[in-house]
């Protein structure tokens, strides 16, 4: 078993934090960096960090293991990257589930805290504890040359998919998910190898998909991307109670700061993409309903698939809906 973090001679604890996002990515800037600043302040300087961004300390799909093994103390853990380990924790990623980053993050936060179904059933098994939750919301259908405003127009298309729940969305549209590494996506769309992809504007911008894809829906709400910053349970247990409180508070503060920032950045990214020549087709109310009709069954189907591998998928789905309702009520 890995050793817990020992305080240095000056009584300070140094936490090694690794993630998979490039410096300047909103999740890094408003997630990791904000959290570190907050935690250092709340702990009165008794907690300091060593931060390794850009997959320096492990690939996106391995960081959960690096944390569990005690190689890093805290890391970005995103359910979409580890579908075999956290098959249910990406429940907020389902199409039509959340309407904003904040709503989704706050609902997920409850389910990923002690007593919540996602923490008890999944994170705990891997010896990690989510402190910060961040959601990139509003996945849209981005296409190379064909304008799409109704779901049936996507039928028969080949769409690059990051896998997992997005595969399910693509399939529910009657299109085929094509898997390929993200760096190949740009050229594949611009050369017509695939017809397009399902992605959030915020995630499309670093790849400059505005140069490759001409069209995008606006308001199709095809899914989200959930990320957490999770700390090793061994490290957590080894900290004095007041520092655990400081980290917990810093995490909750960051979740709230990050979700506002992600909603803003997603809109800003959409504007940048539009300036670069990507045409966003804003869906009308009736058009949105048609998308919801197609993607709605995808949620139940997801729960069934998760149940089929022996995990309480319906439980997770229902809890998510309950929490979302609670969050919506609270915010009114």
């Amino acid at each position: 078993t890995p050793a817990p973090v020992e305080p240095g001679e000056d009584g300070r604890y140094t936490i090694v934090l690794g993630d998979s996002y490039p410096v300047g990515h909103p999740i890094s800037e408003h997630g990791a960096e904000y959290f570190m600043e907050r935690a250092e302040k709340l702990s009165g300087g008794r907690i300091t960090f060593e931060y390794y961004p850009s997959e320096q300390m492990g690939a996106a799909d391995e960081l959960i293991d690096f944390t569990g093994a005690g190689v890093v103390d805290m890391a970005s853990v995103a359910p979409a990257y580890v579908p075999a380990k956290l098959p249910m924790s990406g429940v907020a990623d389902l199409p039509g589930m959340v309407s904003s980053s904040c709503e989704g993050a706050l609902a997920t936060e409850a389910l990923m805290s002690e007593g919540g179904v996602l923490f008890e059933e999944e994170f705990q098994r891997y010896g990690v504890r989510p402190l910060v939750i961040g959601l990139i919301p509003s996945y849209e259908l981005m296409t190379g040359s064909t304008e799409v405003t109704a779901p049936d127009q996507a039928q028969g298309m080949q769409l690059r998919s990051s896998g997992g729940t997005i595969d399910g969305v693509v399939t529910s549209l009657g299109a085929s998910p094509v898997s390929m590494p993200a760096p190949e996506m740009y050229e594949a769309i611009s050369r017509g190898t695939v017809d397009g992809t399902v992605l959030a504007p915020l995630s499309a911008l670093p790849y400059r998909l505005d140069e490759a894809a001409r069209h995008s829906t606006l308001g199709a709400n095809l899914g989200s991307f959930t990320n957490t910053y999770s700390i090793s349970e061994d490290v957590w247990d080894g900290l004095p109670a007041d520092l655990r409180d400081a980290l917990g508070t810093a995490g909750r503060d960051t979740t709230r700061h990050l979700c506002a920032a992600l909603d803003e950045e997603n809109t800003a990214s959409r504007k940048s993409l539009a300036e670069g020549g990507m045409v966003f087709h804003r869906l009308t109310g009736t058009q949105r309903e048609r998308w919801a009709e197609v993607t709605g069954p995808a949620q139940r189907q997801w729960a069934e698939h998760v149940e089929s591998i022996g995990r309480p998928g319906s439980d997770a789905l229902d809890s998510m809906h309950d929490e979302l309702e609670r969050v919506r009520d609270d915010r009114e």
Partner: peptide, 20 residues
């Protein structure tokens, strides 16, 4: 040693399990 073995376990076959 625990750091080294932890790293080898977490990395596992990752360095070669690459589509690219």
């Amino acid at each position: 040693l625990p750091f080294l073995t932890g790293m080898l376990e977490a990395a596992s076959h990752g360095p070669v399990a690459s589509y690219t």
